[in-house]
Design a protein around this nucleic acid. Structure first.
Lengths: 140, 140
DNA sequence: CTAGTTCCTTCAGCGACTGTAGGAGCAAGC
DNA sequence: GCTTGCTCCTACAGTCGCTGAAGGAACTAG
């Protein structure tokens, strides 16, 4: 199999060249073999690994979590408790953010509903922001 | 009215001292009058302005948007279209994030549901991450 | 007077990239 | 063989919205 240049790896994984170099520096991707002219060369395994990383990032996993998941995938004989824990923690995190974002949505929607389109003096948006007492919830 | 020190302003607005100085540097708060010993002194107007800022940040508005909203609140005779636009854009942004986050939640939940607790070799979490084809949605 | 707290400036760090400058290499057309 | 334009290299600064630390000065209470 012929070596893959960083640009082609980028195209095949939809990860930007600069981001690939960043992942290398962070230790998510192994240091690749270089050509005589000092250019990085990759193989199919790198394509798979980078797709794994990109996919996990799309699902919102942090780089630190991805490191753990990558380590795990390199040891298929170990129990998957750790992967489970990482995913569970991530789910809890998502639920948390969803709850807060739903609260915000309600609040901002209410602000907009009250705006009558007059001058700023009468604008509820500005007023609501100026006074937390106007809010639906105590804590945002 | 007696001048307010930065620490007291911090206590009264629940905004950290460092953050207050940061907001000053970013132009959200005006440069305060200093004492002979070079300490910042604030008044009630600053308390109100900072509460406005904090509240808007809690509702997820960006600093740039807050600058716009603050400018508007200083011109009560102008129409509130602009405030409305800022809030509307923010709502659209929240809806966007909610949709994506809900998608992620589903995906991660599905991953967890399939994990049978065996070795990593059989773990669906790792497998799903390795292959986007396993996903519920095409685009995350 | 002393100890403890508050305040000052300046600057580095977070996470996860993104972009730029300034250069070298390479592939294709003439 | 030369030029044009793309790709690649390193090194480093910038993004957003803070946060914290270092090192020093000043205020406050006992």
């Amino acid at each position: 199999m012929k070596p893959i240049a960083i640009g082609e790896l980028s195209r095949r994984t939809a990860v930007k060249v600069t981001t690939i170099r960043f992942y290398e520096e962070r230790g998510l991707l192994p240091k690749p073999v270089r050509t005589d002219a000092n250019r990085r060369t990759y193989g199919e395994a790198d394509v798979r690994r980078l797709r794994f990383i990109r996919h996990a990032r799309e699902l919102g996993f942090e780089v630190e979590d991805i490191r753990t998941l990558l380590d795990l995938s390199a040891h298929p004989e170990r129990p998957c408790d750790e992967a489970d824990a990482v995913a569970r923690k991530h789910l809890a995190d998502i639920d948390d953010r969803l709850a807060r974002l739903n609260g915000l949505r309600q609040e901002v929607q209410a602000m907009l509903d009250q705006c009558s389109g007059g001058p700023v003096r009468e604008c509820r948006i500005i007023e609501v922001l100026a006074d937390h007492g106007e809010c639906l919830h105590d804590r945002h």
